[in-house]
Design a binder for these strands. Structure first.
Length: 305
DNA sequence: CGAATTTGACCGGCGC
DNA sequence: GCGCCGGTCAAATTCG
Protein backbone atom coordinates (compact mmCIF):
# COMPACT_ATOMS: atom_id res chain seq x y z
CA UNK A 1 0.00 0.00 0.00
CA UNK A 2 1.42 3.34 -0.98
CA UNK A 3 1.68 6.20 1.44
CA UNK A 4 -1.03 7.94 -0.46
CA UNK A 5 -3.43 5.08 -0.06
CA UNK A 6 -2.61 4.66 3.55
CA UNK A 7 -3.27 8.30 4.03
CA UNK A 8 -6.61 8.13 2.29
CA UNK A 9 -7.56 5.06 4.22
CA UNK A 10 -6.85 6.71 7.49
CA UNK A 11 -8.56 9.82 6.35
CA UNK A 12 -11.74 7.88 5.76
CA UNK A 13 -11.44 6.27 9.15
CA UNK A 14 -10.86 9.46 11.04
CA UNK A 15 -12.99 11.85 9.18
CA UNK A 16 -16.37 10.83 10.50
CA UNK A 17 -15.27 11.08 14.05
CA UNK A 18 -13.62 14.37 13.49
CA UNK A 19 -16.56 15.67 11.59
CA UNK A 20 -18.68 15.20 14.64
CA UNK A 21 -16.54 17.77 16.35
CA UNK A 22 -16.23 20.13 13.44
CA UNK A 23 -19.49 21.38 12.13
CA UNK A 24 -18.94 22.21 8.52
CA UNK A 25 -20.03 25.51 7.16
CA UNK A 26 -21.02 24.91 3.59
CA UNK A 27 -20.58 28.46 2.47
CA UNK A 28 -16.95 28.99 3.05
CA UNK A 29 -15.80 25.47 3.61
CA UNK A 30 -14.37 26.30 6.97
CA UNK A 31 -14.79 24.07 9.94
CA UNK A 32 -16.14 25.67 13.04
CA UNK A 33 -15.75 24.79 16.62
CA UNK A 34 -18.43 26.13 18.82
CA UNK A 35 -19.08 25.86 22.48
CA UNK A 36 -16.20 25.11 24.76
CA UNK A 37 -15.17 26.46 28.10
CA UNK A 38 -16.24 29.93 27.35
CA UNK A 39 -19.80 29.00 26.69
CA UNK A 40 -21.86 28.67 23.58
CA UNK A 41 -20.62 31.94 22.19
CA UNK A 42 -17.13 30.68 21.87
CA UNK A 43 -16.37 30.01 18.27
CA UNK A 44 -13.26 29.54 16.33
CA UNK A 45 -13.28 29.51 12.60
CA UNK A 46 -11.01 27.03 10.99
CA UNK A 47 -10.04 26.89 7.37
CA UNK A 48 -11.03 23.99 5.23
CA UNK A 49 -8.03 22.04 6.41
CA UNK A 50 -9.42 19.45 8.76
CA UNK A 51 -7.92 17.76 11.69
CA UNK A 52 -7.96 14.63 9.68
CA UNK A 53 -5.67 16.24 7.20
CA UNK A 54 -3.30 17.70 9.63
CA UNK A 55 -3.23 14.63 11.80
CA UNK A 56 -2.50 12.42 8.89
CA UNK A 57 0.10 14.82 7.68
CA UNK A 58 1.81 14.47 10.94
CA UNK A 59 1.51 10.74 11.09
CA UNK A 60 2.92 10.33 7.64
CA UNK A 61 5.72 12.69 8.35
CA UNK A 62 8.69 10.72 9.48
CA UNK A 63 10.69 13.86 9.86
CA UNK A 64 8.42 15.29 12.47
CA UNK A 65 10.26 13.84 15.38
CA UNK A 66 13.71 15.12 14.56
CA UNK A 67 12.28 18.52 14.02
CA UNK A 68 11.53 18.74 17.70
CA UNK A 69 10.73 22.28 18.53
CA UNK A 70 11.84 23.70 15.27
CA UNK A 71 8.37 23.14 13.99
CA UNK A 72 7.85 24.55 10.60
CA UNK A 73 4.40 25.64 9.77
CA UNK A 74 2.89 24.96 6.43
CA UNK A 75 -0.40 26.61 7.07
CA UNK A 76 -0.78 30.29 7.71
CA UNK A 77 -2.56 31.60 10.71
CA UNK A 78 -4.16 34.92 10.25
CA UNK A 79 -5.41 36.56 13.33
CA UNK A 80 -7.50 39.51 12.50
CA UNK A 81 -7.37 41.93 15.29
CA UNK A 82 -11.00 42.86 15.20
CA UNK A 83 -12.80 40.60 12.81
CA UNK A 84 -11.96 37.14 13.92
CA UNK A 85 -9.40 34.47 13.37
CA UNK A 86 -8.61 31.99 10.74
CA UNK A 87 -6.29 29.30 11.65
CA UNK A 88 -4.76 26.31 9.98
CA UNK A 89 -3.56 23.82 12.50
CA UNK A 90 -0.91 21.32 11.68
CA UNK A 91 -0.74 18.43 14.02
CA UNK A 92 2.47 16.63 14.49
CA UNK A 93 3.26 13.63 16.55
CA UNK A 94 6.18 13.88 18.86
CA UNK A 95 7.74 11.77 21.49
CA UNK A 96 6.75 12.88 24.93
CA UNK A 97 6.51 11.15 28.21
CA UNK A 98 6.63 14.11 30.47
CA UNK A 99 10.06 13.41 31.75
CA UNK A 100 12.70 16.01 31.81
CA UNK A 101 12.16 19.33 30.22
CA UNK A 102 9.40 20.22 27.88
CA UNK A 103 8.95 17.36 25.48
CA UNK A 104 6.19 17.69 23.01
CA UNK A 105 4.07 14.69 22.26
CA UNK A 106 1.57 16.14 19.94
CA UNK A 107 2.14 19.21 17.94
CA UNK A 108 0.25 21.66 15.88
CA UNK A 109 1.47 24.60 13.99
CA UNK A 110 0.45 27.58 12.05
CA UNK A 111 1.77 30.99 11.45
CA UNK A 112 0.16 34.06 12.74
CA UNK A 113 -0.16 37.66 12.07
CA UNK A 114 0.41 39.17 15.44
CA UNK A 115 -2.33 40.50 17.55
CA UNK A 116 0.08 41.86 20.03
CA UNK A 117 3.69 41.93 18.92
CA UNK A 118 3.36 38.24 19.29
CA UNK A 119 3.64 35.21 17.23
CA UNK A 120 4.25 34.61 13.64
CA UNK A 121 4.26 30.89 14.17
CA UNK A 122 2.75 28.69 16.77
CA UNK A 123 2.57 25.02 17.46
CA UNK A 124 0.84 22.88 19.97
CA UNK A 125 2.04 19.92 21.90
CA UNK A 126 0.23 17.81 24.38
CA UNK A 127 2.56 16.44 26.93
CA UNK A 128 1.49 13.21 28.47
CA UNK A 129 2.39 13.19 32.06
CA UNK A 130 2.08 9.48 32.47
CA UNK A 131 -0.44 9.62 35.22
CA UNK A 132 -3.99 8.89 35.96
CA UNK A 133 -6.03 12.02 35.98
CA UNK A 134 -8.26 10.94 38.80
CA UNK A 135 -5.26 10.33 40.95
CA UNK A 136 -3.84 13.62 39.99
CA UNK A 137 -7.04 15.42 40.84
CA UNK A 138 -7.04 13.84 44.25
CA UNK A 139 -3.47 14.87 44.71
CA UNK A 140 -4.23 18.38 43.65
CA UNK A 141 -7.07 18.52 46.08
CA UNK A 142 -4.81 17.26 48.80
CA UNK A 143 -2.14 19.70 47.81
CA UNK A 144 -4.64 22.49 47.78
CA UNK A 145 -5.69 21.70 51.29
CA UNK A 146 -2.13 21.39 52.39
CA UNK A 147 -1.13 24.61 50.75
CA UNK A 148 -4.06 26.38 52.31
CA UNK A 149 -2.96 25.35 55.75
CA UNK A 150 0.76 25.63 55.51
CA UNK A 151 1.86 27.67 52.49
CA UNK A 152 5.36 26.79 53.45
CA UNK A 153 8.30 25.72 51.43
CA UNK A 154 8.39 22.60 53.54
CA UNK A 155 5.70 20.70 51.76
CA UNK A 156 4.49 17.38 53.04
CA UNK A 157 6.23 14.49 51.44
CA UNK A 158 4.24 12.52 49.02
CA UNK A 159 3.76 8.85 49.16
CA UNK A 160 6.12 6.73 47.16
CA UNK A 161 6.56 6.99 43.47
CA UNK A 162 7.75 9.72 41.28
CA UNK A 163 6.16 13.06 41.44
CA UNK A 164 3.34 13.29 39.02
CA UNK A 165 2.51 16.26 36.96
CA UNK A 166 -0.61 17.52 35.36
CA UNK A 167 -1.10 16.91 31.67
CA UNK A 168 0.34 19.81 29.85
CA UNK A 169 0.25 21.40 26.45
CA UNK A 170 3.24 23.06 24.97
CA UNK A 171 3.11 25.70 22.30
CA UNK A 172 6.02 26.57 20.14
CA UNK A 173 5.61 30.09 18.96
CA UNK A 174 7.78 32.38 17.01
CA UNK A 175 7.62 35.60 18.87
CA UNK A 176 9.64 38.52 19.96
CA UNK A 177 7.91 38.61 23.28
CA UNK A 178 8.20 35.85 25.82
CA UNK A 179 4.90 36.11 27.54
CA UNK A 180 2.16 35.74 24.97
CA UNK A 181 -1.20 37.22 25.68
CA UNK A 182 -3.76 34.43 25.84
CA UNK A 183 -6.70 36.02 27.51
CA UNK A 184 -5.95 34.80 31.00
CA UNK A 185 -4.20 36.69 33.71
CA UNK A 186 -0.95 35.27 34.96
CA UNK A 187 1.32 35.99 37.84
CA UNK A 188 4.94 35.22 37.53
CA UNK A 189 6.19 33.25 40.47
CA UNK A 190 9.60 32.17 39.42
CA UNK A 191 12.34 32.24 36.90
CA UNK A 192 15.12 29.78 36.47
CA UNK A 193 18.09 29.49 34.25
CA UNK A 194 17.77 26.56 31.93
CA UNK A 195 20.68 24.24 31.60
CA UNK A 196 22.41 24.43 28.22
CA UNK A 197 20.30 27.40 27.29
CA UNK A 198 21.11 31.08 27.47
CA UNK A 199 17.46 31.84 28.01
CA UNK A 200 15.77 31.61 31.38
CA UNK A 201 12.50 29.82 31.96
CA UNK A 202 9.70 31.75 33.55
CA UNK A 203 6.97 30.26 35.68
CA UNK A 204 3.49 31.71 35.70
CA UNK A 205 0.37 30.87 37.63
CA UNK A 206 -3.17 31.81 36.76
CA UNK A 207 -4.25 34.63 39.01
CA UNK A 208 -7.80 33.37 39.34
CA UNK A 209 -8.64 32.05 42.77
CA UNK A 210 -8.08 28.33 43.15
CA UNK A 211 -7.23 27.96 39.51
CA UNK A 212 -4.46 25.38 39.32
CA UNK A 213 -3.23 26.25 35.88
CA UNK A 214 0.41 27.07 35.47
CA UNK A 215 2.51 27.78 32.51
CA UNK A 216 6.18 27.80 31.76
CA UNK A 217 7.65 30.07 29.18
CA UNK A 218 11.08 29.70 27.74
CA UNK A 219 12.90 30.41 24.56
CA UNK A 220 14.27 27.59 22.53
CA UNK A 221 17.99 27.40 22.84
CA UNK A 222 18.10 26.21 19.26
CA UNK A 223 16.17 29.12 17.91
CA UNK A 224 16.00 32.17 20.09
CA UNK A 225 13.07 33.50 18.14
CA UNK A 226 11.01 30.56 19.25
CA UNK A 227 9.08 30.71 22.48
CA UNK A 228 7.98 27.49 24.14
CA UNK A 229 4.94 27.95 26.31
CA UNK A 230 3.81 24.97 28.33
CA UNK A 231 0.39 25.04 29.93
CA UNK A 232 -0.26 22.70 32.79
CA UNK A 233 -3.65 21.95 34.23
CA UNK A 234 -7.07 23.22 33.43
CA UNK A 235 -8.66 26.52 34.18
CA UNK A 236 -11.50 26.28 36.62
CA UNK A 237 -13.04 29.47 35.42
CA UNK A 238 -13.90 31.26 32.26
CA UNK A 239 -11.40 33.26 30.40
CA UNK A 240 -11.51 36.86 31.57
CA UNK A 241 -11.18 38.02 28.00
CA UNK A 242 -14.15 35.91 27.06
CA UNK A 243 -16.23 37.34 29.81
CA UNK A 244 -15.44 40.79 28.58
CA UNK A 245 -15.85 40.07 24.92
CA UNK A 246 -15.58 37.59 22.15
CA UNK A 247 -13.00 34.88 22.00
CA UNK A 248 -12.74 35.54 18.33
CA UNK A 249 -10.22 38.10 19.29
CA UNK A 250 -8.10 35.71 21.19
CA UNK A 251 -4.90 34.25 19.91
CA UNK A 252 -4.43 30.49 19.55
CA UNK A 253 -3.08 29.72 22.99
CA UNK A 254 -6.39 30.51 24.54
CA UNK A 255 -8.09 28.16 22.19
CA UNK A 256 -5.85 25.38 23.35
CA UNK A 257 -5.82 25.95 26.99
CA UNK A 258 -9.15 24.49 27.88
CA UNK A 259 -11.65 23.62 25.26
CA UNK A 260 -9.15 22.78 22.61
CA UNK A 261 -7.31 20.68 25.10
CA UNK A 262 -10.42 18.58 25.39
CA UNK A 263 -10.72 18.37 21.68
CA UNK A 264 -7.18 17.21 21.15
CA UNK A 265 -7.49 14.69 23.91
CA UNK A 266 -10.67 13.31 22.45
CA UNK A 267 -9.07 13.03 19.07
CA UNK A 268 -6.06 11.35 20.51
CA UNK A 269 -8.24 8.81 22.26
CA UNK A 270 -10.22 8.17 19.14
CA UNK A 271 -7.08 7.92 17.13
CA UNK A 272 -5.79 5.40 19.58
CA UNK A 273 -8.83 3.20 19.33
CA UNK A 274 -8.99 3.49 15.59
CA UNK A 275 -5.35 2.81 15.03
CA UNK A 276 -5.67 -0.40 16.97
CA UNK A 277 -7.47 -1.73 13.97
CA UNK A 278 -4.46 -1.06 11.81
CA UNK A 279 -1.63 -3.05 13.25
CA UNK A 280 0.25 -3.26 9.99
CA UNK A 281 0.12 0.44 9.44
CA UNK A 282 0.96 1.09 12.99
CA UNK A 283 4.06 -0.94 12.81
CA UNK A 284 5.24 -0.24 9.35
CA UNK A 285 4.24 3.24 8.54
CA UNK A 286 3.54 5.03 11.75
CA UNK A 287 6.58 5.04 13.86
CA UNK A 288 5.02 7.86 15.80
CA UNK A 289 1.98 5.88 16.68
CA UNK A 290 3.77 4.38 19.60
CA UNK A 291 4.19 7.89 20.75
CA UNK A 292 0.53 8.50 20.62
CA UNK A 293 -0.15 5.22 22.24
CA UNK A 294 2.07 6.19 25.07
CA UNK A 295 0.44 9.51 25.29
CA UNK A 296 -3.19 8.69 24.95
CA UNK A 297 -3.74 6.59 28.05
CA UNK A 298 -2.53 9.49 30.04
CA UNK A 299 -5.06 11.81 28.59
CA UNK A 300 -7.70 12.41 31.15
CA UNK A 301 -11.32 12.81 30.39
CA UNK A 302 -12.19 16.14 31.76
CA UNK A 303 -15.58 17.16 32.86
CA UNK A 304 -16.43 20.77 32.83
CA UNK A 305 -15.93 22.41 36.19
C1' DC B 1 -1.06 51.22 48.41
C1' DG B 2 -2.13 47.04 46.31
C1' DA B 3 -0.61 44.19 42.65
C1' DA B 4 2.96 42.28 40.08
C1' DT B 5 7.73 41.03 39.47
C1' DT B 6 12.36 39.78 40.90
C1' DT B 7 15.44 36.77 42.94
C1' DG B 8 17.85 33.92 46.26
C1' DA B 9 16.76 30.04 49.07
C1' DC B 10 14.73 25.84 49.60
C1' DC B 11 12.73 21.25 48.43
C1' DG B 12 12.15 16.87 46.10
C1' DG B 13 13.28 13.75 42.35
C1' DC B 14 16.71 11.47 40.08
C1' DG B 15 21.18 9.73 38.47
C1' DC B 16 25.64 8.30 39.77
C1' DG C 1 24.92 9.68 50.21
C1' DC C 2 25.81 13.35 47.28
C1' DG C 3 25.22 16.57 43.75
C1' DC C 4 22.52 18.31 39.99
C1' DC C 5 18.42 20.17 38.35
C1' DG C 6 13.60 21.59 37.90
C1' DG C 7 10.13 23.68 40.36
C1' DT C 8 8.29 26.57 44.10
C1' DC C 9 8.24 29.84 47.87
C1' DA C 10 8.33 34.26 49.82
C1' DA C 11 10.66 38.54 51.13
C1' DA C 12 12.14 42.47 48.82
C1' DT C 13 11.51 45.46 45.22
C1' DT C 14 9.18 47.71 41.45
C1' DC C 15 5.20 49.27 39.11
C1' DG C 16 0.74 51.42 38.11
Amino acid sequence: MSRYHEREYLRSLFHDELASLFSQTPTDGAACISGGPSGPDTRAIFPAVTFTDVLLDSMMDNDALPREFGLSCSAPLDVHGSGGMTWSPELMAHVGNGSGSTTPAFGCGGSATPVTPNSSTSSLSAEAAGEDDADRCKKEEQQEEEVDTSKKVNKPKKKGGRRQRAPSFAFVTESEVDHLEDGYRWRKYGQKAVKNSPHPRSYYRCTAQKCPVKKRVERSYQNSTTVITTYEGRHTHRCPATVRGSTLLLPPPLMFTSFFQDLVMQQAQQLNSTANQLPHLQQLEFPHYGILQDMVPSFPHHGQP
